[in-house]
Design a protein around this nucleic acid. Structure first.
Length: 956
RNA sequence: GCGGAUAUGGCGUAAUUGGUAGCCGCGCUAGACUUAGGAUCUAGUGGCGAAAGCCGUAACGGUUCGAGUCCGUUUAUCCGCACCA
């Protein structure tokens, strides 16, 4: 039978739609399985071939699981809030909702053409009020909870208030709870809420007019747009994700992710163990150690400062201290003589942009404050410096500098001529003068030297001993620090979820849950307001009437009953942090998702998506889920049990070579001397086939090429790609897939040309799903040919029972394909299909009972043709309702095995032995074999190693 | 700098996990059928060699009867983090 994909594919897509073939219900006796793709942001450019790679892989797996008898949840939706739609709105005035709607329609059309088995009845869109109602709801819960370190989980803020009221805990630092005014209490509680408002240094991007999260900034530039980002102190909402740092680290042991992704997350969370130590200030007039202030250690805050170190063992090597320029004690401790210099330095450091600072990491800068601290273990006076190599955001913003064993301290000491003292050595008997060192000795190995009571100890033991001592002295403690920062949650943008927050007397209050969703208001302008407020500042109906519980005109704000609403919106990760849970029960208006739904589905069994979300979405979603777990919503600590990262698809650009002398002349790639005579120009890959340029289409491509002339290949290059005379051969290079390089491959074109099934198979055939690879259509013909050959098998269809040879092919194929799918190796699965088809193609007739099963095997990969052939075989309904075939191990048995036998690793003997023999029988066979006898020459072999089904080794 | 990974024909890749390296596909070569071929089919295709054979999985070394696979050193490429004390 002919392979007429352009007829078959629309037909079955229509059938699936009409029959609701992929509808998935929450009640089923079948075991459940949840396969999820990272939902896409619907950009204006549409899908390119990189998007469906992961979707195809997950679709194959979902279909396979269904055939295996699972109730499979396999949904799709859109991460529809985002910057591009808003930027487009600013440029054109087009409302982002309209652009987004249009893009979604285009995405849907493209996805439908590929034949995915998504249950579209469960579609979610983050910008849909029915969806973001629950994003806002979660925010309110975060606002109303704090992290109880004792119970190690989130608890209602009322629980904390209760404890404060009963006096079970006392408010630290501030006045006692009982003496606080209501507002003071609110301000105090803000320090505990999991969603909180605070003045914090943020990544401010002036070009985008908004704040960015740490993962949205790379090298001081915004990920979107590449604009400079500066540090700025702003009042922002943040999520206290740091409270979950330890659980986020621990949870990684529970999930089946790649080591590299786990490692990326561990690095991002950056757990490090060490000690916090208080260093008292030295009295400036004191000269002898015993005079130096030691008696006031209890009153830490005024006369001491706290440092964090991961190397407490090196405390005897401290020769100076360094504070970050933002440190609050600088002003207090700086001596009058140094004041001018210090102030100038601090001002300079604060004005430096993030990009400058990062670009000049190697440059050493700093200033002496004139003040001294005391090393609490040695009583030594050590100078206090200020430098921007110490960061305000990590630890305490102050360090003890051990130049001999920290490369940054070393560089600083060398630059400012500060002493360097060795306190760790690999061999304690061989010390050298650090003045001669070229670099510091940072490794945590060897022994402590010159280190008082820990001298001679191994570094590890010394660490513990020093911490014990410090704790005993009451001047510090064992501490864990995390690199992870709280997630800034405000964005000065229009196209995002509004915060369910209004301000009374400048303090935030939440909108009652019953009033959600708080709808995104209309604005006349998507840019920030003239006064620099976010775009929502333009909204005319954006105030909260507390009594009537509704949104009213902004003009009615009187701050008595009508109050201003929050003007920022939530960031992109807000909507994507819980969407996988919403899919379980997407039409529920009473709750985020029902208890029954989440108890049925539990969590995502298989999540497929790019590794680029490793430090963004995948951290936020885990945090979000853990919080929902704490408040009794989700039932699993980890949202994504198994995660597969599909590799990025790079572009493969094609080039034509334009002559330097003659703008209309293009010289083919392999013409001798071409490189010197020409300039490469990107050419649209859609008018190039297997690197051969379609000359006519090239002339039509752009007006300036209308009169192009070509110097074509001659036949001098056999073996090279079709370098026959009369062809123009293009060059190629691997680059990022982008419009400007004309290397974007649109899946629609390939579907039109080869069909969706070919596209699906080819994307899988390209290589392992996890591997990054350039897009290249050079092999797609081969895959297409396979489908044609497969259809051809049906020409020789017979009802006669299959012979042994066919059954063997069938059962081998069932085994291989099943194994391949289970280990997510779809490229080998496609290869194995080809082998099977080639083998059966050599037969005169092919039995129906064989094809019955092969069609089911093919269904996950090429669902359209599988449906068609399923009907050709006379079945009713959809192949999706078929049963995955099992293989019969007896059919895989080989008649004989070949055992190469090596003697002393040199001689080799091959014995043909019958199958199914035991080790003893195999050994006996070797001994009985005449050739083996000859080689053994009557001697007993010392050792016969028998590896089942594989080989026998004889050692004489 | 730290961390993670990868390295196999002209190309994408495979190798039952330590057992005959190169399956499958592309490309290429030759042939068949064709007015034609960018259709289809057949055969061949790691390198050197006329052949027997020798060499061959980034490089060097090790373990093993046996290494693409395990261990060590080096090199190259990709990814993540990056003054995180």
């Amino acid at each position: 039978m002919d392979y007429n994909f352009s007829e078959i594919e629309p037909k079955w897509q229509k059938y699936w739609r009409e029959q609701h073939t992929y509808r998935c219900l929450n009640n089923s006796d079948k075991p459940h399985f949840y396969v999820l793709d990272m939902f896409p942001y619907p950009s204006g450019a549409g899908l390119h071939v990189g998007h469906p790679l992961g979707y195809i892989a997950s679709d194959i797996f979902a279909r396979y699981k269904r055939l295996r008898g699972f109730n499979v949840l396999h949904p799709m939706g859109y991460d529809a809030y985002g910057l591009p739609a808003e930027q487009y709105a600013i440029q054109t005035g087009q409302h982002p909702a309209i652009t987004t709607e249009k893009n979604i329609a285009r995405y849907r059309e493209q996805l439908d053409k590929i034949g995915f088995s998504f249950d579209w009845e469960r579609e979610v869109r983050t910008c849909d009020p029915k969806y973001y109602k629950w994003t806002q709801w979660t925010f309110i819960q975060l606002f109303n909870h704090y992290y109880d370190t004792e119970m190690d989980k989130a608890m209602p803020i009322s629980h904390l208030v209760e404890k404060l009221e009963k006096g079970e805990i006392s408010a630290v630092g501030d006045k006692p709870w009982k003496e606080m005014s209501d507002e003071e209490r609110q301000d105090y509680l803000m320090n505990f809420r999991l969603a909180y408002l605070a003045d914090i240094p943020v990544n401010w991007c002036p070009e985008l007019g908004t704040v960015l999260a740490n993962d949205e900034v790379v090298n001081g530039l915004s990920v979107r747009g590449g604009y400079p980002v500066e540090r700025k102190l702003m009042r922002q909402w943040s999520l206290r994700i740091t409270a979950y740092a330890q659980r986020l680290v621990d949870g990684l042991n529970e999930v089946e992710w790649t080591d590299s992704l786990k490692e990326i997350q561990r690095n991002w969370i950056g757990r490090s163990e060490g000690a916090a130590v208080w260093f008292p200030l030295a009295k400036s007039e004191a000269t002898r150690p015993e005079e130096i202030l030691m008696g006031q250690i209890e009153t830490h805050e005024e006369t001491s400062f706290e440092i964090f170190t991961t190397r407490p063992d090196t405390i005897f090597g401290v020769t100076f201290m360094v504070l970050c320029p933002e440190h609050e004690m600088i002003e207090q401790i700086t001596t009058p003589e140094q004041r001018e210099e210090v102030e100038a330095y601090v001002a300079w450091a604060k004005n430096r942009s993030e990009r400058e600072r990062q670009a000049e990491v190697k440059k050493v800068s700093g200033v002496f404050t004139g003040a001294f601290a005391v090393n609490p273990l040695t009583g030594e006076r050590i100078p206090i410096w200020v430098s921007d190599y110490v960061l305000a955001g990590y630890g305490t913003g102050a360090i003890m500098a051990v130049p001999a064993h920290d490369s940054r301290d070393f560089a600083f000491a060398r630059h400012f001529n500060l002493p360097i003292r060795q306190v760790v050595a690999l061999d304690p008997h061989e010390l050298s003068d650090p003045a001669t060192w070229e670099e510091s000795m940072d490794a945590k190995t060897g022994y402590s030297v010159n280190s008082g009571f820990v001298t001679g100890m191994k570094v590890k033991d010394a660490m513990a001993a020093v911490i014990d001592k410090i704790e005993e002295m009451g001047i510090g403690s064992r501490t864990v620090n995390y690199r992870l920062r709280d997630a800034i949650f405000s964005r000065q943008r229009y196209w995002g979820e509004p915060f369910p927050i209004y301000y009374k007397n400048n303090r935030p209050y939440t909108i009652p849950e019953e009033c959600l969703p708080l709808l995104l208001p209309e604005v006349k302008d998507f840019k920030p307001t003239a006064t620099g407020e976010p775009p929502l500042g333009h909204a005319t109906v954006w105030a909260w009437d507390e009594q009537n519980r509704q949104v009213v005109e902004t003009s009615k704000i009187d701050n008595k009953t009508v109050f201003p609403l929050e003007l920022s919106t939530m960031p992109g990760f807000a909507g994507s942090s819980g969407y996988y849970l919403r899919y379980m029960d997407p039409r529920n208006d009473e709750a985020y998702f029902s208890k029954e739904a989440v108890e049925y589905w539990q969590n995502v069994d298989l999540y497929v998506g790019g590794a680029e979300h490793g430090t963004g979405h995948l951290i936020y979603a885990r945090f979000w889920n853990k919080f929902l777990f704490d408040i009794g919503m989700s039932v699993k600590q980890e949202p994504f049990q198994k995660l597969v990262n599909q590799g990025m698809i790079q572009g493969r650009s094609n080039f034509v070579y334009r002559s330097k002398e003659d703008n209309n002349l293009f010289i083919s790639k392999n013409i001798p001397g071409r490189a010197e005579k020409t300039v490469p120009i990107h050419v649209d890959i859609n008018i190039v086939n297997n690197d051969i340029l379609d000359i006519e289409r090239f002339r039509q491509w752009r007006p300036e090429f209308a009169n192009a002339r070509f110097e074509l290949e001659d036949q001098a290059m056999p073996g090279d790609n079709k370098a026959a005379a009369g062809r123009y051969v293009c060059g190629w290079e691997i680059e990022k897939m982008s419009k400007s390089m004309y290397n974007v491959q649109n899946p629609d074109d390939l579907v039109a040309r080869y069909g969706a099934d070919t596209l699906r198979l080819y994307e899988m055939f390209l290589g392992p799903v996890e591997q990054a690879k350039p897009w290249d259509t050079n092999g797609i013909e081969g895959v297409h040919r396979f489908l044609k050959k497969f259809c051809k098998l049906f020409d020789s269809l017979t009802d006669a029972p299959a012979d042994k040879a066919q059954l063997k092919i069938l059962h081998q194929t069932i085994k291989k394909i099943t194994d391949d799918i289970e280990r997510f190796s779809f490229n080998t699965a496609v290869s194995n299909f080809m082998i099977c088809t080639n083998d059966l193609g050599g037969m005169k007739t092919v039995s129906k009972e064989v094809l019955d099963k092969l069609v089911v095997l093919l269904a996950p990969f090429a669902p359209h043709i599988a449906e068609e052939l399923y009907h050709v075989l006379g079945h009713e309904g959809s192949v999706c309702q078929a049963e995955w075939p099992d293989y019969d191990p007896a059919m895989l048995v080989q008649d004989t095995f070949t055992y190469p036998v090596s003697f002393n690793g040199k001689m080799r003997l091959t014995l043909e032995l019958p199958n199914g023999i035991t080790q003893e029988e195999a050994v006996a066979a070797v001994k009985a074999d005449t050739l083996a006898q000859k080689w053994l020459d009557g001697k007993e072999p010392k050792r016969i190693v028998f590896v089942p089904n594989k080989i026998i080794n004889i050692v004489i």
